[in-house]
Design a protein around this nucleic acid. Structure first.
Lengths: 241, 241
DNA sequence: ATAGTCGATTTGTATGACAAACCGTCCGGG
DNA sequence: CCCGGACGGTTTGTCATACAAATCGACTAT
């Protein structure tokens, strides 16, 4: 009796399975899922476990259960699009260019503003955290180390704003950076190319220069976007060749 | 604050009760809740209903259940701060000045950027929706009508960005506007005073002038913030008198 | 033709039972 | 004395079953 290593709880498995089906478009908004008893049987779990999964999906705004009717898939407009799971499900298959653009746009809204606020209000400890992340990026030997340190850097900047609401948007930044690493052309060859840009952000926050920090962060995002466009072009050419 | 739903499901009641206790600070991060059987008894529900509530709270990042240990309240850093329920619970009692400032800050990050993007990309239908909301604000006779139309206006602007991730931040804007209406000094006397500012945003979006729209939205938020500061001053004076 | 009623369907809640994971304790060996 | 492993109590995780409540559609009476 072997169990997968990445052990998730039973209900977690069910939730992911159904969540991916919905977000992936296998069942469309307006449709109703099979009745709980049937679903539970087809997923090999008890109705209890299934129902807990449905409750959480309902909390994420994906479905709505009504007695006598069933669980209906809600319109995308009701989905909790910023939820980490929902974002992950949207990236489960290769994300569309359209979606990547929206992620980049979110970064452009969030991160320059965050950098500016961080430059205004960062504490000494918060600056130290950003600095530590920067040094970890500098010291990174592998792509994995770099990725982890990069995420830590952006998280530390959000944290330094002192606004926990802003920090909760990290799931968006995380997803955006994740797809960037997946799609980007340069990551394989020279994954450290954006280090100087990170340094500029760090220094601006250290010196408490909000507008400098904002522009530095903006430049960094714009550059990574250009990078994406570039690799997109290559992918196109490759596909049509 | 307004009550969205009159009758809630049983598990919904339990979830709100526990959610408020946690967010309100009655049980602090690190503490563990009583065991499920005890909690269920004290809340007069079955373990089934209680567990569904706990699952959803867990999905919102408020608690973590581990077998053999119990349900532990997580650090605030893990909370899903952008969740509509979590925001509502933070406003359940009179929100702290600190929290209101953070809400305003979020608006300053989100809405000017959204207005600019809306001005860039709005469709004819999306513009019509913003226009309709504006006219509803103009025609409002009561504070309730105004409030509803105002929310609709800001939602329509977010929608017009065409970025559903951005639109999911409406819960934040909604909460911010809600506390504004609760706390603001001017709402009682002349609740329509911000109509011209909304008109400027509308016109800029109509004319597809991103930077004009951004500045108009920014001015609107800055003004409402000033308004809040003003009523805060009065509240202070009153309290110390 | 329409309103009201009834019944079939599906979710909501309750209850009891057991499995699985966790924690502290106790015990034995070094 | 110190330390590691086994053991048992505690708590959550999952399952099975039963019934209550809500909903929708069809049928009936007027």
């Amino acid at each position: 009796m072997r169990k997968p290593i990445a052990v998730r709880s039973l209900y977690g498995h069910v939730m992911h399975e159904l969540g991916q089906r919905i977000v992936g478009g296998k069942v469309k908004p307006g449709e109703v899922l099979p009745r709980e008893e049937t679903l539970a049987e087809s997923l090999q779990v008890s109705r209890t476990a299934l129902r807990e999964a449905l409750k959480v999906l309902s909390a994420k705004g994906l479905i709505e259960s009504r007695t006598g009717v069933g669980a209906r898939v809600l319109e995308k407009r009701h989905w909790n699009q910023l939820d980490a799971d929902v974002l992950a499900w949207r990236c489960a298959s290769m994300p569309t260019d359209d979606f990547v653009d929206k992620l980049v746009e979110m970064r452009e809204v969030i991160e320059p503003a965050a950098a500016a606020n961080a430059a205004r209000r960062r504490s000494t400890e918060q600056l130290a955290a950003i600095d530590a992340a920067y040094r970890a990026m500098d010291a990174a030997q592998t792509l994995d180390e770099w990725t982890a340190a990069d995420l830590q850097f952006h998280d530390a900047v959000l944290h330094a704003t002192g606004n926990e609401l802003l920090q909760s948007l990290f799931s968006v930044v995380e997803t955006a950076l994740g797809t960037f690493f997946t799609l980007s052309a340069r990551t394989a060859g020279n994954f450290k190319y954006s280090l100087p840009q990170h340094q500029k952000v760090l220094e601006a926050i250290r010196r408490k220069q909000p507008e400098v920090a904002r522009k530095a962060m903006h430049a960094m995002i714009a550059d990574s976007q250009a990078n994406l466009q570039h690799s997109r072009g290559r992918a196109r050419k490759k596909a049509s060749a």
